[in-house]
């Protein structure tokens, strides 16, 4: 069963730059998909479009029954509650502890205190930071901070986890740790994961579905892909 159905989507920025051309794509529930391509190929735009940070100029994006392309600003939160989002720069709140950062995602949607506690601890445990729940982000390494961000993204049991270059700031060893965690989430919970990256090594090692974008066009879609130097 497909979770995402994208039909002839075009994205053009106000400055006239075309970021995505006529993109059509289906992603199944439980898939792990890499979106690769060089700088400016439209990876980030693709991810942003999925969490409705930008609106496509034309086309349709159906995500878990919601038409994302036509979603009004005031209703965007309905979509976001079904998603988890992880960024290259972690985006944690520096004045909150690990626990508070993760719990924050549940607090702001009005979850019960007991529910917050159970889910938060579970998510932190899943990313292997149980011993560091009371630490602040600046006391953690980059890899650990990214793990907090992942815990925050999955704490609400989203159907889809969007990752925009989550390993971009990390060394290869830490990057692999993050990938293991993501793979684990994908396999144990069944969360669909879409990850934009330009990390060749990761893509080649993971052997997942790979979507290649070039200048806003979908140029390749491998079932068990490799990072193709010529294309990307």
């Amino acid at each position: 069963m497909e979770l995402i159905n994208i039909k002839s989507v075009n994205v053009r920025y106000k400055n006239g730059v075309n970021a995505i051309y006529d993109l059509s794509l289906k992603i199944k529930k439980g898939d792990f998909v890499f979106v690769i391509g060089g700088s400016g190929c439209g990876k980030s735009t693709f991810i942003k479009m999925l969490y409705r940070e930008i609106k496509p100029n034309s086309g349709e994006i159906i995500l878990g029954g919601l038409n994302v392309a036509k979603l009004r600003n005031s209703k965007v939160y309905k979509l976001r509650r079904k998603l988890g989002i992880v960024f290259q720069d972690y985006r944690l709140l520096p004045k909150l502890t690990v626990y508070e950062n993760v719990a924050f995602a549940l607090e702001v949607i009005g979850a019960k205190k007991s529910e917050i506690q159970v889910k938060t601890l579970k998510a932190i445990e899943l990313v292997g930071l149980k011993s560091k729940t009371r630490m602040y982000p600046d006391q953690l390494s980059g890899g650990e901070q990214q793990r907090v961000a992942i815990a925050r993204a999955i704490v609400n049991n989203p159907k889809l986890l969007l990752c925009d270059e989550p390993t971009g700031n990390l060394d290869p060893e830490k990057s692999m740790e993050i990938m293991k965690i993501l793979d684990n989430i994908n396999k144990t919970i069944g969360t669909t994961i879409i990850m934009a990256t330009h990390d060749k090594e990761i893509v080649n090692k993971m052997k997942k579905r790979v979507i290649v974008l070039k200048d806003g066009h979908l140029v390749k879609d491998y079932e068990k892909g490799k990072y193709d130097d010529e294309i990307a």
Partner: peptide, 8 residues
């Protein structure tokens, strides 16, 4: 961040 995690 509130917006990202789905606060109304």
């Amino acid at each position: 961040i509130m917006r990202l995690v789905g606060a109304s």
